[in-house]
Design a protein around this nucleic acid. Sequence first.
DNA 1: CAGTTGGCATTTTTT
DNA 2: ATGCCAACTG
Length: 879
Amino acid sequence: MPDFPDDMPFFDEEPMPRAGAGGIAARAMAARRPPAPSYLDGLNPEQRLAVETTEGAVLVLAGAGTGKTRVLTTRIAHILSLGLAYPSQILAVTFTNKAAREMKSRIGLLVGEAIEGMPWLGTFHSIGVRMLRRHAELAGLKSGFTILDTDDVIRLIKQLIQAEGLDDKRWPARQFAMMIDGWKNKGLGPSEIPEGDARAFANGKGRELYKAYQDRLQTLNACDFGDLLLHPIRIFRQHHDVLAEYHRRFKYILVDEYQDTNTAQYMWLRLLAQRPKQPSSPRSRGEDAGRQMRGGALTSDVGAGSSSGPSDHLLPVNGEKEGQVNICCVGDDDQSIYGWRGAEVDNILRFDKDFPGATVIRLERNYRSTAHILGAASHLIAHNEGRLGKTLFTDIADPEDAKVNVHAAWDSEEEARAVGETIEQLQRQKHNLNDMAILVRASFQMREFEDRFVTLGLNYRVIGGPRFYERQEIRDAMAYLRVVAQGADDLAFERIVNVPKRGLGEAAIRQVHDTARALRVPMLEAAAKLAESDELKPRPRAALREVAANFARWQAALETTPHTELAEIILEESGYTEMWKNDRSAEAPGRLENLKELIRSMEEYESLRSFLEHVALVMDAEQNEEMDAVTIMTLHSAKGLEFETVFLPGWEEGLFPHQRSLDEGGRSGLEEERRLAYVGLTRAKKNLHIWFVSNRRIHGLWQSTIPSRFLDELPEAHVEIADAGNSYGGYGGGSFAGGRGGRQNPYGASRFDNVGYSGGGSFSNTYATPGWQRAQANRTEATDRNWGSRSGHAVERIGYGETDSTYGAGRGSVKSRTIDGELVAKSVSDAPSPFKVGDRVFHQKFGNGNVAAIEGNKLTIDFDKAGQKRVLDGFVTSA
DNA sequence: CAGTTGGCATTTTTT
DNA sequence: ATGCCAACTG
């Protein structure tokens, strides 16, 4: 890849400078800085140890807000400043581009332009690509390979599924894409996946399909994200000389967010970190074997047929003078929240077994949050098992500090209203909106807040959401560029061959496709050939000829025309811009604007190719940081951030912890949810407001909910029950100690328990009723419990719509659903319906039927002809 | 080929 | 409820 500025001879930097020996870097450092390493100032003893322990394996367990990034960046600055390595000899990996960017800029502040020489600071994927571009041919690719994103992958898989003659409804491409992703996260190629996995998809054709997918990628000269790591892993295993080059190159390895590494990343790191056994090593073989790391074992799982190859060379390196690995992993097992996408917390839990004798440093002094917030967070996370164990502390305790506030609301609308109210109050007290964030479990929760803030005229910013590069017009434009840059990119070609409309229908495209397969050439080439033959009708033929001619012309111009200009030409000549100009829809102008923005952003890149790579790997666009606005985002995307005031809405069973986590992950799923809660709590510096509601609309139905078990796990000493609906003016703040003795409902708030609406009283409280915790644990007993509230109509019913279970006219036995042995109260409370179960009714659309179940005004009716439907009672009449 | 309709799923997100 | 996708229909 020509655009790598560092694409120079590999060992340009030998010999390696020694500390204080007057190496170039060291002298440069010395010149730039006073002799005393001022960057060490202000580090606490643990941080300083983490920075100064440069040799050997180091695990830094950095709790939230303990200065993790500072340690990482200072450590790099330290290594450079002592002249222990050149910048290009340091491998520093992060997960996100954002983290990489931040590290880069912060190291830049410490070491000045020496940072420019750090080409190996980046995400796993960007470093993976960099390696793969160098050695593409060893993976059967050409250096200009395309990186496919999830969308492309799904389309490709869909084609393959159809090509296999399988029903793509029964076997969704999306699902298979996820399976492949999962396998790749584990470092498994087609021949290595478990038989069970292979059989689970496509009538047992899973393995063949995976294989076909990989073959197809190869002919497309493309990779998916997983390949960016897997290919290098294979190359390292099969080409020891290549691996040896990297071994010699990297003197120091640093890994950020180690708790988020998946197995493939772990293997990749192991390969780079483990040095070949020194033939002259005094260590006996037996000792080596005893210390064999997991990486060795994994090797046999992965490298097809290579189990007896490289793994013999992968030996523990700890304590060895020669080939010693200086690896420093920084992470926090308590903040591992990406298990669902393959992260293995185990990687961090086992660090000291992988690197016997590793130095483990705990950073527990928190610089971010008040003692109350830390107390709450620590107490909560202590409910998890299998932790490495850390306790955050701070000695900046101010009696003025607010306790963690827990609020109850009737429903999500009130929740949003009250949060908005609080925010406005803070705003009046001159707090910046920028210092406040609403962190939700699931993105659907955002809408309610957005709606509310729009009516209030409150600025907000949503993080997450659809990204710039995922928009249709951007992807279309990118597809044009991709075909120009890499003619074999059939996926891109197919995407735009008939966009704008050129009269090329399915039939014509299929023909191009088939021809391409038959001739074993890219579709673009096949199109050109077809256009010269008589196999097509005149119209599509002419269209294809034009498309082929266009691409030929653009490809030729690639060398001579600046890429920005070329992009404009392409969009113009292809008729793409024209298409949107003629579009009368409301979005069209915005799309044109986006296209301009795309062209503008290209200017920052040297070539079309480097731009395309950037887009593939760095799929993000800058946010408008200018305005003062409340941030709304998911808990996941909040990791690593901090805000003065944090709102955590939706702490209800089923939503948080999320039911699906419980279903699919069982106990570990719950623990991950708890870590997510921990992440949420520790984002707050000063003020923390947690909310739960009694009723939430889920999938369009109102369901009554119970407070999250996590609320019970907060320590009373640091928590305060706040007024529920401050928007209605103060009403007696209830306290958890209150509770409503004798109430049958052990599951918390309902409107009638709620404070304020009728004055006085306190909302049901989880502390007051330790029973509810136990009730949750002993689920079976509660299964058939039918509880109601005093007023009679807020009857909670469980198991709606799931079964044919009959509701005894609002009473009687009700089936419930249990998840992981725990009750998940799904219920609906509404006005009673005029109908009874068994009533004969008529519906305009569905005809006659019998009422099978009633939930409020929603009826489940077995229609004679239309089957079972759920309808509103207003739409049926007695028959 | 395009607009319409019906069925289905609906946590979290990076690269 | 809502949105998205795929098949249907003009």
